[in-house]
């Protein structure tokens, strides 16, 4: 059953990746990447169970942190570069 969860997560990551490529706006891409990040957190946790190595959960937790900070950082970056274009 962890296999099934992993498969579902991989399919969803593929769908989100399609959205990241299709865009059209930069925000669609950031949303897709953020969504892929969330699914990666779940994927790492599922893989930990699949491999019988619960230590993976620490990596998963860390990835959740990085994913959030990364999204906010990218948004800041976009806003800053837009503001510079505007002047």
């Amino acid at each position: 059953m962890f296999m099934a969860a992993t498969a579902a997560l991989l399919v969803t990551i593929a769908l989100a990746l399609a959205r990241a490529f299709a865009g059209p706006s930069v925000y669609d891409r950031v949303l897709a990447v953020n969504s892929i990040g969330t699914k990666t957190v779940l994927l790492i946790a599922a893989l930990g169970f699949l491999a019988g190595r619960p230590d993976f959960l620490d990596i998963s937790l860390l990835y959740a942190l990085i994913n959030f900070v990364g999204t906010i950082a990218v948004l800041r970056f976009i806003r800053q570069s837009r503001a510079q274009e505007g002047n």
Partner: peptide
């Protein structure tokens, strides 16, 4: 886990299907 996998996939499908950015936020 089956339920979770289902809802995760629904989110992915919605991300592709919805017409614009703001509507895509909801399935995500």
């Amino acid at each position: 886990i089956a339920g979770g996998a289902f809802f995760v996939m629904v989110g992915g499908v919605g991300l592709v299907r919805m017409p614009d950015f703001f509507t895509r936020l909801h399935p995500a």
